[in-house]
Computed example of a mutant assay.
Amino acid sequence: MTWLTPEQVAVELDLTVPTVHRLCRDKELPGARKFAGKWRIPSTALEPQPIPILAPRSKRSAAQQRRTA
């Protein structure tokens, strides 16, 4: 695994370094860790994450669903 600095991530994502620090602090960059007081972000954190597809919710109530089942 390759570890990146906040400066490298900022360039890659076109963000400011303080924004990357905030993302690390708020745990929005998966796997970001502090080593010797400095943030390091795994390169895998920059890979696109799959978006889960949720089934559409039924408009019927649970009681209505039980009656017809």
Rank of each mutant, 00 (worst) to 15 (best):
L29T: 08
G31N: 06
L4V: 06
W39Q: 03
A32R: 03
R60H: 04
K27L: 07
Q8E: 15
A32T: 03
S43Q: 12
Q64G: 10
I51T: 14
A45T: 09
L29K: 12
L15S: 02
I41D: 11
P50I: 05
V20R: 04
L54G: 03
A62G: 00
A63Y: 07
A36D: 14
A69G: 15
I51L: 12
P6S: 15
Q49V: 14
S43V: 10
D14T: 06
I51Q: 09
T2S: 12
P6W: 15
Q64Y: 00
L54W: 04
W39V: 00
A45D: 13
G37S: 07
P56T: 11
V9A: 11
I53Q: 04
H21R: 13
M1C: 05
L23S: 01
A69P: 02
D14M: 01
T68N: 07
I51G: 01
A45E: 09
A45N: 06
I53N: 02
R40M: 06
P18G: 14
S58N: 12
A55I: 02
S61E: 07
G37P: 01
P42T: 10
V17N: 13
R22N: 08
R66D: 11
I53A: 08
Q49G: 01
L54N: 05
R22T: 08
A32P: 02
D14L: 01
T19V: 06
W3C: 00
P48V: 07
Q49S: 11
T5D: 09
S43D: 14
Q64K: 12
E28L: 14
P56Y: 08
F35D: 12
P6E: 15
T19G: 01
T2Y: 00
P30H: 05
K38H: 12
V20W: 03
Q8L: 04
R60M: 07
S61P: 11
K27D: 12
L4A: 09
L54Q: 11
E47H: 01
A55W: 04
R60D: 04
T2Q: 14
S43I: 12
K38V: 05
A45Y: 03
C24P: 00
I51H: 02
L29A: 10
H21P: 02
K27Y: 04
K38T: 05
K59G: 15
K59M: 03
S58E: 13
L54P: 01
P30G: 02
K59W: 00
G31W: 00
I41T: 10
G37D: 12
P42H: 13
I51V: 14
G31K: 06
L13H: 04
I53T: 13
V17R: 15
K27P: 00
R66P: 00
E47K: 10
P50S: 08
K59R: 05
L23P: 00
L46K: 05
L15A: 03
P56G: 09
K34T: 03
A32F: 06
K38M: 08
S58T: 11
R66M: 12
P56E: 12
G37M: 09
D14G: 05
A69M: 09
R40H: 11
A55K: 10
T44L: 08
F35M: 14
G31T: 11
S58Q: 06
I51F: 01
A63V: 05
A32E: 05
